[in-house]
Nucleic acid binder design. Structure first.
Lengths: 335, 335
DNA sequence: CTGAAAGCGCTAACAG
DNA sequence: CTGTTAGCGCTTTCAG
């Protein structure tokens, strides 16, 4: 920056001013500006963000932690969030939680040391206390994605799980005539398992149907998880006619086990799942799912975060519920 | 850090020393160390990486730019690279190129301003001159993933495209008896299109087969691309009996178009592709592919980069070829 | 073995 | 409208 100033024949602080024109309320003559821009051009100067950060105490970076890079659910969200970050001239530090508590804690520590100006995360194991301790120490705004975080300073996006599952299971019962419905949930009661299970239970109860304990299986968010769950369900003496899975990958795993065992979908089992990822339309039959608009969730999450970063919003954490819609394809038939 | 020093009753520079013990050759008494660690613990102190970076001129960050976050090909690679970065106590800045020249250029600029200590990228549009200009200015080591970058300072991992495609197409001809083979390549001759096309051509020529121009379609790395390509191929008066696609997503798109038009795979068309992503085994019939060990590529790429970052390797860029193997599933039948 | 002090590149008062 | 100056929090000589 000194070199630029020297070449332009001005002081270094003037260069800094023209570079941060918005923040400085001081007017600068067009002529000086031109000289400076020419010098910058000639030298190919790029400001050093490290130095700027040290001074301003803002890093122009946000951190995003996703549950699992392998899960297509997160891709549109990350992409959209990255797009809005770019609008604000922010970079994004992405981290892979892989659903491990250790990774989630390390992520927080990294965010603290680095530090970042804001965080988007999908905490699966982190407790409210973990988050609270972090926020007390750092004051970095956090928005949580699809988690049941109850914290006065954390904005939450998601939480359509309970009602959406209720509607979907009710649809399976009322419109499609199923009465024996299995549920593939999430191991260790990680989010978003519990609200979806509760939506399922409520729908069953409201319809006056009994829930057979063997019909509820809790597994990981993976194809293998779905396979495991379905194998167990298939061993029931009187198996369900429909399966609601919390997650597309698990639904696909379940479908594959059933097909490999000689069953036909949807003739022998109807399968339905949550979140419309590309795999849902690759698979045959195509999956009927509860779909949320993932790119717009990504947008929303990032915009909410920047409201905090820019200080436009202060005060207690807010809760945003995203829309959903039922996409009917081929994996469910009427009983 | 001052607070820690005060609480421990030592000077701030001593605290810094115990925190960077490896780099400092100066011995420090056990007693002092203990006092300092206690103080750190008590205060919950975390060093500020920004300040450290400003001083050391190293950021403890690497940048990774992938072609497309949506393409499962990159997921194991990113995950593995992130794992090794963590071993070196590095953070990872991930960016999504989305196969756009503009994004690739912006990525480089970001890496320069930020700056990072090293870069892993899969350049699709960036020219050797772009990269050369960047390296001249920044001296940041780069390792390129699966690209045909010819630059004296850039390490390249990949480049099995030509021989692997040659082998695969030859297998289609010799073992499976196909003589009319279509090829779905990459639009605008982006990597890794050209070497794969050349492997295909060489195999066809070596087998004495003619290449019909209408059998070669160049499209994007997406399902839609594959759909488009296959639609055109299906309109040929005398279509091929087998299709080799450069990319699984495109292969899946192609398969779906064929199936939706009433053709059966592999009875009417054999389909084969490159890179074994999860979708390849979800789809029916399961895809026969040329598979590379993606996690180990990710590991390798990162390790090569850290050799440069740590200065263990200097000198001209190296070329690493990864292993591949043919995984036969159900999408190819003998003619 | 430990402390003092310089300075990484920048921003933002403050002073003209 | 522009220049001078004081740090941001750390590492690393240089002295002791």
């Amino acid at each position: 920056m000194d070199d630029v100033a020297r070449l332009a024949g001005v002081s270094q602080s003037t260069v800094s001013r023209v570079l941060n024109e918005t923040s400085s309320s001081v007017p600068i003559s067009e002529e000086t500006k031109q000289k400076i821009f020419n010098a910058i051009e000639e030298l190919g100067y790029e400001p050093n963000l490290i130095a700027r950060s040290l001074r301003t105490q803002r890093t122009q970076m946000i951190g995003i932690m996703i549950g699992d890079i392998t899960n297509a659910f997160y891709h549109p969200i990350v992409r959209a969030a990255q797009d809005v970050a770019r609008l604000f001239d922010y970079d994004v530090l992405i981290s892979n939680g892989d659903h491990l508590y250790e990774n989630e804690k390390r992520f927080l520590q990294t965010m603290l040391r680095r530090p970042v100006d804001g965080i988007i995360m999908s905490p699966h194991h982190l407790t409210t206390e973990d988050l609270d301790r972090f926020i007390k120490r750092s004051h970095i705004p956090i928005v949580a994605l699809g988690a049941q975080v109850e914290h006065p300073m954390i904005d939450v996006v998601g939480s359509t799980s309970e009602p959406a599952t209720y509607e979907a299971v009710t649809w399976l019962i009322r419109e499609k005539g199923h009465r024996r419905i299995g549920f593939i949930g999430v191991a260790e009661d990680m989010p978003p398992g519990p609200p979806r299970l509760s939506g399922y239970s409520r729908a069953m109860t409201d319809a006056g149907l009994t829930i057979e304990p063997g019909f509820i299986q809790k597994v990981e968010f993976t194809q293998e998880g779905g396979q495991r769950a379905m194998s167990i369900i298939l061993q029931q003496p009187n198996p369900p006619t429909a399966i609601f899975a919390c997650n597309c990958l698990a639904a696909i795993g379940a479908m594959m086990v059933a097909q490999d065992s000689g069953y036909r979908i949807p003739e022998d089992f109807s399968v339905m799942s949550f979140d419309d990822i590309p795999e849902a339309s690759i698979v045959r039959p195509r999956l009927t799912t509860v779909a949320r608009d993932l790119p717009s969730i990504g947008h929303q999450v990032a915009e909410i975060l920047f409201e905090r970063i820019e200080g436009k919003i202060t005060g207690p954490g807010r809760l945003f519920r995203s829309e959903w819609e039922l996409i009917e394809r081929e994996s469910v038939r009427t009983q």
